[in-house]
Each structure stands twice: as structure tokens, then as C-alpha cells.
Amino acid sequence: MTTAQPTPAPTVGELFAGIGGMSLGLAWAGFNVRWQVEIDEWCRRILESHWPDAIRFDDIRTLDPDSLAPVDLICGGYPCQPFSNAGKRKGSRDDRHLWPEVVRILRHLRRMERHPAWCLFENVDGHVSMGLDSVLSDLEGIGYTCWPLIVPACAVGARHQRNRVWIVANAKRDLFQGRPALASKGCGQSTQEQLAGLLFPCPWPSLSVARAFRAGDGFSRQVDRNRAIGNAVVPQVAYMMGMAIRTAHEIHNLPYAGDPT
């Protein structure tokens, strides 16, 4: 009697991981988190507590791409301060503009033929009017076909709008031909309909409202927590994106890199 071999799980590595909001959503979608890159020490402790088997790195600026295990998906929410409407919008002149480091890593992996089949990136909606064209051009220059769209937090049941740009990129073939360049900013079903070509209807974990508030008691013990929560992506959106990527990958019979576990 032949024993059926287990299907490999898709694997992911996260840049700018923070407290792991994107890792969490993708783990819900069945991805195995192999490595995470995060410069903040407090955030790295949170990541270690939830993903003890993942390898962690600190500063993306000194990261050697050869030290990264091969994955099916590289994701991350690169710093938004250069593009945010709440900031000075210095763009590439901002010293927090770290997108070039992402490009450096992806180009190296491409040369080594170890680039992931998928990329998933997130940023503020102010990125649409500053810097997004350059990001898409960089990804296409590396060999990725991109589909940018805007998904608000309220699309997955949150009590705030929080529009965010999500960039889905695929290196194997053009899966996005004929799709809209950007989804609308509307809440609810319209956003799901934009994903209908990739995502089979399925439920996702319900969104609970975070109960962490800035305290005015003079103590700083919650500062790291509040900042990290504020910087984190909504995991339910990452879950939706992860399910869409898995569905598209399997519909087109693309192989996974394999789960070493």
C-alpha cells in the first residue's frame, strides 16, 4: 500500500515584520513562516514568542540575502513615513525610505535564481500619489507582474476605514491581465468582488477590537505596545490576500518551494 505524501505548505518570509500582523494573517491562510526581519528589539521578542521556529534578523540594511531560506512568498509593510499624508512626504529623500533595500534583496535572489514566486507588500494610501509608480517599476524590472489595490480595514469588519495599498506581485506568469489597477476605497463587498478572480468565497477569522489605549498615567510601559499595534497591518486583510495567492497558485498548478518541516 502506497502512503500518500503530504502536500507541501507554502512558505513565507516577512520583511519589516513589526509584531507579525502579516505573518499572523498568512499563517491563518496556511503559510509556514520561515524567517522574519525586524529592527525593533521589543517587537522581535513578540515575534519569537509566537513563531519560535522562525529565524529572525534585525536590520534590513545589513541583511545578507544569502542568509535567507528560500520561500514561496516575501511580504512586508515597508516604512510609510516617506509617503504618509500625516508626515512631511519627503519620499526618497527621507532617511526612512527603505524600499531600495527590498529591491536589493529581491534582485540578489533573482540573480541567484532563488527569488520567490510571490511578493506581497503594504503601505499607506498616500503612497498612491507618491512613490507607488517607482515601486511597481522596480518590481516589474526584477521580473514581477504587479496588481496594486486598496483594501480598507472596514472591508474585513474593523470599526475604522484605514485605507491601505496592497501590492500583489507574481514572478511566474501574468495572472492579473485585464484586472483593475486599483480597487475602490469602498468598504464591504466591493473590495471582495475585486478579489473574486483570485479568491474562492471563504470565511476568515472575525476581527476583535484591540483594547490597548494610550494611557495618561505618566508610565511608559505601553508605549512600545501601542506603537507596534499602530504600525501593524490588519491580520484579516493579510489572511484574505494569502488565501487569494494560494488559490491562484494552485489553480495554475504552480509548485511550492516546499515546507522543510
Rank of each mutant, 00 (worst) to 15 (best):
A183G: 11
A238S: 09
C187M: 05
A232R: 13
F57H: 14
E101W: 13
P205A: 01
N163M: 13
A244S: 10
E250T: 11
V124D: 04
G258K: 11
G242M: 08
A244V: 01
R164S: 03
V103K: 15
L106E: 08
G197C: 09
L63H: 11
P8R: 09
I55E: 14
W28Q: 00
I46D: 02
R56G: 10
V12N: 07
L98Q: 11
R173I: 00
V37T: 10
G21I: 01
R104T: 01
E41L: 12
S92V: 14
L47F: 13
R114P: 05
L73Q: 07
R246M: 04
L109A: 06
V102P: 05
H115E: 10
V151L: 13
G18N: 05
D133R: 15
Q36G: 00
H108L: 08
V223E: 11
N231V: 04
S137C: 10
A86G: 08
R111D: 10
M240A: 10
A257K: 15
A238Q: 03
G178H: 09
W166I: 03
I251P: 00
D259R: 13
R110E: 05
R246I: 04
R221C: 01
Q222F: 14
P203M: 05
Y239A: 08
F121M: 11
L254V: 05
Y239D: 02
A248E: 08
I46E: 05
P260T: 04
S49C: 12
Y144E: 04
R179V: 04
I245F: 04
G143T: 11
Y256P: 01
W147G: 01
L73T: 04
G197P: 10
A228Q: 10
L182F: 15
V168F: 08
V128A: 06
M1A: 07
G25S: 07
F176Q: 03
L207Y: 10
C80T: 05
G91A: 05
P65H: 07
P10S: 00
S190R: 15
Q36F: 03
E122Y: 06
W99T: 00
R110C: 01
H97K: 06
D59M: 10
R61G: 09
V234D: 05
G126I: 06
E250F: 06
P260K: 11
I60R: 09
R173S: 02
D95A: 04
V156E: 00
R164W: 02
L149Q: 02
A232L: 12
L24K: 14
S184W: 12
F219V: 00
T3V: 14
G258I: 09
A228S: 13
A181D: 11
R110A: 07
P100T: 02
W204I: 08
Y144Q: 03
A228C: 07
W99I: 00
S134C: 07
N32G: 01
G18C: 08
G76W: 15
T261L: 15
H97D: 12
V237S: 04
K88H: 12
P79K: 13
R110D: 06
L73K: 07
A86P: 08
I142S: 07
Y144C: 01
V33F: 06
C146E: 04
N32W: 12
H115L: 06
L195M: 09
F219Q: 06
R104H: 05
D58R: 15
L68A: 06
L24Y: 12
L139V: 09
S84N: 04
F83A: 00
S208T: 12
M22W: 12
G18L: 06
C202V: 07
A196V: 03
N163H: 15
Q36W: 07
V223H: 14
